[in-house]
Amino acid sequence: MNKAIVTDIQRASVHDGPGLRTTVFFKGCPLNCVWCHNPESINPNPQIMHYSDKCIGCGKCEDGCFSGAKVVCGKEMTAEEIFAEILQDKPNYANNGGATFSGGEPLLYKEILKELILLCKNNGITTAIETSLFLFDPEILSSVDFVMADFKIWDGEEHKKYTGVNNDIIKENFKHLDTLNVPFVVRTPIIPTINDSIEEIVAIRDFIKDFKNILDYELLPYHPLGVTKQKALGLPETRFIVPENSKMEILRSYANIKAKN
């Protein structure tokens, strides 16, 4: 039976697509963005996270930790098990809510995703996916109701420097995505000193603006949620400055693809 490693399933999410959603965070990502706010979802294997401030010093770590000081991140789950969680909020999805597959990179788990999408469809639950588009699966991407795809940095070299991969394949995948007739949103996380320039946003905007299935181009401000988790994973801490609202507003004015036409 196919299993996926899942870091978390978050219910009642309002920022991972339309309506109220259940977001499934898969573990494992081909990218390694220095600003990642879910660094625990990069490594595809279960990991131990240590929160020393929660330790009560009972000395019984091996018998099981219940204080939250030592947490296993990543649980093996079948599609049925994941779907059982998604199904719990069926009464709350209304017309446009549903399940969002996120990560990490959900497209690492193609077979599970196909099973999940089918289960959702058979139960009248809409689906969405959040992806870096470094991987591509036309069958999966054309079967979900909504796609949220990241375009992180325009320049290929810079992209490789900060995410670990070149973006040529991502650009090609964006073009391919637009042929699938699935509505999608493009998102760029704004990381000060890396991609917070008008030129950067304009370059991405000009690349995506003529896609026929694009709904919106969203800019998301960096937030430092990942730093604590990097520490808990024993990784070097990488912290950026949170962009000011005024800066975000300026950049957003250039990201308005509806106005460009």
Binding site: R11, A12, N92
Partner: peptide, 12 residues
């Protein structure tokens, strides 16, 4: 009651 404090779970 849940790590995500989901209002939907509470509602159900």
């Amino acid at each position: 009651f849940r790590t995500d404090g989901a209002v939907t779970a509470q509602s159900n």
